[in-house]
Write a protein that binds this DNA or RNA. Structure first.
Length: 184
DNA sequence: CTCCGGATTCGT
DNA sequence: CGAATCCGGAGT
């Protein structure tokens, strides 16, 4: 298994969010490789996207989003839950894709249907903020077998009602019929 | 410095 | 539907 190349992330964010479906997320914890298959994502397009954290501009918190593609942006929400994104497009673009659900593949305990649940189940927390995804401890990779073909459902993003018309954009993607999607 | 509210989840 | 529980960002 080797990580997807930097060029995978250095593309249009919506394209990356769709391409990530079916890919594997791997995290090595104490010598054990935890693997989940990505089944649900959301695209956050940049500072002009009022639902994106980068809409606040370049701050200490958003600096990872403004950085180069292929890095993890991990943040704490509601004082208790970690959520993970992958940074997309060129440095300075400040776009990212949120991982919303994975299907357990290997060494995973607990539920994975939701951005915070998948982080908990895979042992992902703030220590991984800024981590390069071209590494051997946290990365995305192509599955060995491509698996059954699937179609992609497009829906409005979850929990961003404050973002005006951006809340209605169809920037949430998931594998049709997959039982591990957070809110089918 | 204080205040507000959040890319969520769980229990009532 | 409301609590949990911390901190980033905005305002004073």
């Amino acid at each position: 298994m080797h990580p997807l190349p930097r060029s995978f992330y250095d593309r249009d964010t919506e394209t990356v969010a769709r391409a990530m479906l079916g890919m594997l997320l791997a995290h090595r914890v104490e010598g054990r490789l935890r693997i989940g298959r990505i089944v649900e994502t959301e695209a956050y397009l940049g500072p002009h996207d009022l639902a994106a954290h980068s809409a606040k501009g370049l701050t200490k918190r958003t600096s990872i989003m403004f950085g180069p593609p292929g890095h993890a942006y991990v943040y704490l929400i509601y004082g208790m839950h970690w959520c993970m994104n992958v940074v997309t497009q060129a440095e300075g673009h400040a776009s990212a894709v949120l991982l919303r659900a994975v299907e357990p593949v290997k060494n995973i305990e607990g539920r994975t249907q939701g951005p915070a649940l998948l982080c908990k189940a895979m042992g992902i927390d703030g220590r991984l903020n800024g981590h390069d995804l071209l590494s051997d401890s946290l990365y995305l990779c192509r599955p060995r077998a491509s698996g059954d073909p699937f179609s992609i459902v497009k829906r409005p993003r979850i929990g961003v009602d404050y973002a005006g018309h951006w809340a209605r954009r169809l920037l949430r993607f998931y594998i049709r019929g997959n039982p591990f999607v957070s809110k089918p």
